[in-house]
Amino acid sequence: MQHNTELSVAEQDDISRNKTVAVLAYILFFLPLLVAKDSRYAMYHANQGLILLLTGLVANVVLGLIPVIGWLLLPVANLAVFVLAILGMVSAARGERKPMPLIGGLELIKAPS
């Protein structure tokens, strides 16, 4: 976790200007792609939001196809996705670039240089 004292002025400005978009990226991952495409901070959280969406989709499809046991595990998986979304939103609101547990290490959306 980076502390704001370790960040450059440009990075702090990027975070403060795009914090709301970063939080909303966990609901609409593509929002930063439309309104903050030059923001490394917003793109980081857009990437996390996309990973979360894909994880939820895969979990729902796979568990939905498994009779009984899968159907019983489906609410647990959806709750886990919801909890990860809340953790991501809190991280974004705090100005952090903290990857989500287990799935946050993937990079599907490249941040601008």
Rank of each mutant, 00 (worst) to 15 (best):
R97D: 00
F82T: 03
N47C: 04
M89R: 13
A46Q: 11
F29P: 11
G56R: 07
T5S: 14
I66E: 07
A42D: 06
G70F: 00
D13M: 09
G105D: 07
Y44V: 00
S91G: 13
P32R: 06
D38L: 00
L28K: 12
Q12T: 06
P32H: 03
H45W: 04
L63I: 00
V9L: 14
P101H: 05
R40F: 07
R17F: 04
G105V: 06
V68I: 08
L108Q: 09
I51N: 07
V58Q: 11
R97W: 02
N4V: 07
A80F: 11
E107C: 12
V81D: 00
L106P: 01
A36N: 08
A42T: 02
Y44N: 05
I69V: 03
V83K: 10
T20E: 05
I27S: 09
S39G: 01
G105C: 02
M1A: 13
M1Y: 12
F82I: 03
E96W: 09
P32M: 06
K110N: 11
P75V: 01
D38W: 03
S39I: 01
I69M: 11
D14Y: 10
L108E: 05
P99M: 03
G88H: 12
I69K: 14
E11L: 08
V58A: 14
G105Y: 04
L53I: 01
P101G: 01
L72T: 08
F82Q: 06
V61L: 11
P99F: 02
H3Q: 15
L65Y: 10
R97P: 13
A42K: 13
A59I: 04
V9K: 15
F30G: 02
S16C: 04
M89I: 05
A22E: 08
L72Y: 10
N18L: 06
L50Q: 01
V58L: 15
G88S: 09
A111M: 08
P32Q: 05
L53E: 06
L54F: 10
L102N: 07
V76P: 14
S113G: 07
P99S: 01
I69E: 11
V68W: 13
L73M: 04
A22N: 10
L108V: 01
L65W: 13
D38R: 07
H3E: 14
N60K: 15
N4K: 15
V90T: 03
A111P: 15
H3V: 13
V68H: 13
P75K: 02
L74A: 05
G49P: 09
H45L: 00
G104D: 06
V62A: 05
K19I: 03
P101N: 02
L106F: 14
S8R: 14
S113I: 03
I15H: 09
D38N: 07
F29C: 03
V76C: 12
V83Q: 07
T55P: 13
L87P: 12
L28F: 15
A46N: 10
G56L: 02
P112H: 06
A59M: 10
S16K: 15
N78S: 10
L84I: 06
K98M: 00
D13Q: 15
E96T: 04
L34I: 12
D14F: 08
V68P: 13
I103K: 08
I27C: 03
F29T: 00
V83F: 11
F30A: 04
S16R: 15
G56A: 06
